[in-house]
Nucleic acid binder design. Structure first.
Lengths: 343, 343
DNA sequence: TTTCTATATGCAATCGATTGCACAAATTTA
DNA sequence: TAAATTTGTGCAATCGATTGCATATAGAAA
């Protein structure tokens, strides 16, 4: 009971003078076992405080019941929510989660992928880092016969399951809403254009302007403004123009939108009457700023659940022939005070 | 290269007409290997896209280089931050993280502990769920010879490493600050008293009142008010008293404090002049409410790093004789608008 | 030249659980 | 009662990597 090494099925077998095979069968429920024997094995296992060694079991069975998840930052609301969603479904199915954080660095992402492959996880779920410049490591996952599911930030060229928000549509909706509220000079704070999500959001912006006959001014499009500080700086620049915008869509994040709001307050520019502000992500705080911030809810927990369900559907149907597909979750525009000037 | 089964050291050995032992040595760097052979092995491994099977390796070596983490909710800022902190250190040391979520349910917590034991993780890091009524499952971890580190919400009776905030002191500091600001009738929103952290915060509250000669009114202590809604309800009740409090310390969370603030705004009670409000956790939003909310920063990422470092220190020093100890991280009172009426 | 040592390699056991196959005992069916 | 099933049990191989021990070869020291 207190020996240094753990208790194994051999110990149980020895004690009961039966073979390890029988112990294994009794405990796993596979194959024939006399009820009395099974009962005895269970009791002995309990008494010895036996814990099945999953490592050994996994090796023999050639499976690990483990999903690997790689995100840029664990402690970013959106990703934490997605992970929580995945965990929910995985737990029900008896699967474990190994979590890696790429810290937005390609190198760390590559290493994490390799670790997960080595661990023989059955599926790798990933949202790529901002500085990922190529996707050999992801192709590798596929070559190893491991399921690969991308979400949110996806490498579009790779033929995998993908779960994304319809960023283009959400962005379009946001701009249309601004236009309907009477804003005519709408600026865009955009994210790194090597990531598809940000390109899509930009496209939605462009399409909406075009469809409503508004001109696109290059000056109104600010690159890489995705922190509060960068959002603030961008705003100062934009509001300094002779022909300053009357609305700013922070397509990168709510933090960026917050920076916009703070600068507006600072400059005593009234929101929403003089300036409309729309963010992205529906962070908790957007509800409680004054005015509250209009934003886009990405249904992050649902996204995680969708990802997990895709994996389980696939393995349960044995249908690895199912073509790669993209599931698009429609985000929802949450209209709040920062854009509501026509009441 | 594309056979169904993965490439093993046997495949490499066969190709080079050497033994698997040599391949293992060449790849791991243990034992003598001719440079030429090593080079050849490396190239072949690369060419065949060999990936070492960690499962097999772990079984043989009797280690897993894995840490298990159990938290009530992954997508709660504080916990996500702690996990991020742990991940940071673990990654440097080449360790992986298996994450479980107890959803505040004892049953799920127990199952998660067992899964982690079965996986033979080398350390289990846990913050216990709110409805944990006994700690047999944790005792079990210790009995299995697995390191157990508790953080934040800890079972005090268990003789383990613990990393906590000095909740009592932080709470004391908060109340003292309120008193210094001239508040005299301070109410407390308290959390489930079966959790030590909430008892400690209450103690800090009581000690501060006593030390400053203020009376303790039972009416001013509201149980289990740890969501925004419950905080709001509690506030309505408190402000309805003939002798209503002039300050509310939401020791449970910032969300609760937010509920307080919203009710105050609703009732047109001025914060901080008529009512002081102090929260707990330093959630991002506390900075941007109006007024901003005074709160306690728990240094959550550091907490995660501390936890991980404790584990690595211990295994690196081989010093499992080190007595269980408690590391206390001093939280910091962040003073903001909601309590600053004397400027 | 002989002895010794450092280096290189192979053999076979091991980690712990699972399972196909063989055989025996018990039970059912013909 | 004999033949056919259904159960119960054991044996030994297997999953893939690692490592102690034995052996062989090279070069170095005596």
């Amino acid at each position: 009971m207190n020996s240094k090494k753990g208790v194994t099925i051999y110990d149980i077998a020895q004690q009961l003078k039966i073979t390890p095979s029988m112990v294994s069968r009794a405990l796993s429920g596979n194959g024939y076992v006399n009820d009395a024997t099974r009962q005895l094995v269970r009791e002995t296992a309990e008494a010895l405080n036996y814990k099945r060694n999953t490592v050994a079991s996994n090796l023999r069975m050639g499976q690990t019941k483990t999903i690997g998840v790689i995100v840029p930052r664990i402690n970013q609301n959106f990703f934490a929510n997605v992970i929580a969603g995945i965990e929910n479904i995985a737990y029900e199915k008896g699967y474990s989660l190994i979590i890696c954080q790429s810290d937005e660095q390609n190198e760390k992402e590559v290493k994490s992928v390799n670790t997960l492959i080595n661990q023989r996880v059955e599926c790798i779920v990933i949202s790529v880092s901002a500085d990922s410049y190529n996707y050999k490591h992801l192709q590798n996952v596929i070559d190893q016969g491991i399921q690969l599911i991308q979400f949110d930030r996806v490498a579009e060229d790779l033929d995998t399951l993908k779960v994304i928000n319809d960023n283009e549509q959400a962005s379009f909706d946001a701009i249309r809403h601004l236009i309907e509220q009477g804003y005519k000079k709408i600026a865009l704070l955009e994210g790194p254009q090597n990531l598809a999500i940000f390109r899509q959001r930009k496209n939605g912006y462009l399409r909406a302007l075009k469809q409503h006959g508004l001109p696109v001014k290059d000056d109104y499009i600010i690159e890489n403004a995705w922190t509060k500080e960068l959002g603030a700086a961008a705003t100062k620049k934009l509001l300094g123009f002779n022909d300053a915008p009357d609305a700013i869509f922070a397509s990168t994040s709510d933090f960026s939108a917050l920076g916009v709001l703070e600068v507006a307050n600072q400059l005593n520019i009234k929101v929403p009457s003089q300036l409309g502000i729309c963010g992205y992500s529906n962070e908790a705080f957007t509800e409680i700023t004054s005015p509250s911030i209009t934003t886009v809810d990405q249904y992050s927990v649902d996204m995680g659940k969708t990802v997990a369900n895709l994996f389980f559907d696939r393995i349960e149907e044995q249908a690895d022939a199912i073509a790669a597909k993209t599931v698009s979750i429609k985000p929802e525009l949450i209209i709040r005070g920062s854009t509501s000037r026509m009441v």
